[in-house]
Write a protein that binds this DNA or RNA. Structure first.
Lengths: 249, 249
DNA sequence: GCCTGAGTGTTACCGACGTAACACTTCACC
DNA sequence: GGTGAAGTGTTACGTCGGTAACACTCAGGC
């Protein structure tokens, strides 16, 4: 596997004409930004997780898959995970990325057969909890209710935001929004820039943006020329949030 | 306003080449079909709604709008409502259609400023209930918890299904799925066919399908020539579910 | 009856993006 | 050090669908 360290910037840079430059109007993107991060941290964990065993998942390992029918949520302790599905034409589609402190698998609440899947993006520790157990705890401690509702509501918000972008934005703008979302969820400050501390292939980014990998390659280089992004010497993305926000707005 | 009774079928029917005929692979559409219908009927209503006043909304009247900041759910008693938003480029986008027995406005659970809006598609009766009141009732009657969670979970399921279609289907297939969804939610049996008992303009259908009205016009006529849909003498849509399901699959 | 406005039907044109094909870089492993 | 696999960069081509423009149908008001 080739690491993308210091990705080769071709000397003959192609014309920018391909990627539309005109500023798109901004989305009613809803302030979904901060995501599910850590919603379940604290009280929720204290009430549900003690005396349960953690499971380790290696990079690329499937936590649960489309078609599974056990109804369990997974409380992520450590690591990054992608949540998505496999489309009818066989391609992967990524809805969301979550990390330690988040939950995945909430869709099993109203379906027996899972429509979605979660895959570890890197070494991940998670505690599986049967859905019924979660409900039981919330019934006994009604102060946790708000948090449970919040988890679903935020996910719903994000899903709608995704529909919005798909309806109005072109590839470059959607890529921007994906990068900003990643920054909000798993970004780490690195001076005035924000680093995405996980290596994501262009293919994976494409699955989040909903576009072909080739377009992502072109769009990423477009953003690099615009100084909106760069790579660290570890091959990670380094984002200029200000610039990205301006462009995506 | 012209009624679309017996819509004029042009004698010179255009070639079908424009609309792709090849069968697309089917979506992992998740069995979201039946939707939120009546989820809140029964116990939930008994516990929350007594002694509250109903509000009437006329066709086209806004129930709540983008930017509103009161946190209230609306329990629909009668009528049809569209839930959606206004995109950054000023166009309306419809996420969902709901009817008597459903709730709308659930997104206010985690946002103060509403990102969405609900508009009556016909005369509608609804009971507004502050979000906090709903939470209070659920806390006191934990058996309602499952239903509350179910509402959010189903909405989430549908939102993801929408992302799926946008990712893989062309306009004609998306239209099919929208029609099938309408059938599941507000359809009425009419012999072997199912009738959509509300008049929807092509513009509104376009907002559900996420496409321009012109494309919808063409696609609807394409489906008519294929005998997958027709109009009643009241100008309502009449759907051949079998055929639509086969095509959309 | 006539006019206006809303809704629908149709087409030509063009741009964005999927497809396909291929070159290049880096790393792992032998 | 060589080889293959994975990942990235780039282009030519075709197509779906947005844009624009316009014709037609019907209902209601004058």
């Amino acid at each position: 596997m080739a690491s993308p360290n210091q990705p080769f910037v071709p000397s003959a840079v192609k014309t920018e004409s391909e990627l539309s430059l005109e500023l798109n109007d901004s989305l009613t993107q809803a302030a979904v930004s901060t995501a599910l991060v850590s919603v379940f941290r604290g009280k929720f964990c204290d009430a549900i997780l003690p005396n349960r065993k953690t499971i380790s998942f290696k990079k690329e390992q499937i936590i649960y898959d489309v078609g599974d029918n056990e109804r369990t949520l997974f409380f992520l302790q450590e690591g990054f995970v992608k949540v998505g599905t496999i489309t009818s034409d066989g391609h992967e589609l990524i809805y969301d990325v979550r990390k330690g402190g988040d939950v995945v698998g909430e869709l099993c609440a109203s379906e027996t057969r899972r429509p979605d899947r979660a895959v570890a993006l890197e070494q991940t520790e998670a505690i599986p909890v049967p859905f019924d157990d979660v409900m039981e705890v919330v019934r006994k401690q009604p102060d946790l209710l708000a948090r449970l509702v919040d988890v679903f509501c935020r996910a719903l918000n994000e899903a709608y935001a995704q529909v919005n972008t798909l309806a109005v934005d072109d590839t470059a703008h959607r890529l921007c929004k994906v990068l900003l979302k990643l920054a909000a969820k798993i970004g780490q400050n690195s001076g005035s820039e924000v680093e995405i501390p996980t290596y994501l292939t262009q293919e994976e980014i494409a699955q989040m943006v909903v576009a072909r990998r080739e377009r992502i390659s072109t769009a990423l280089n477009f953003l690099r020329r615009k100084k909106m992004i760069q790579y660290t010497n570890h091959g990670h993305l380094l984002l200029n949030l200000k610039a990205l926000e301006t462009y995506s707005a």
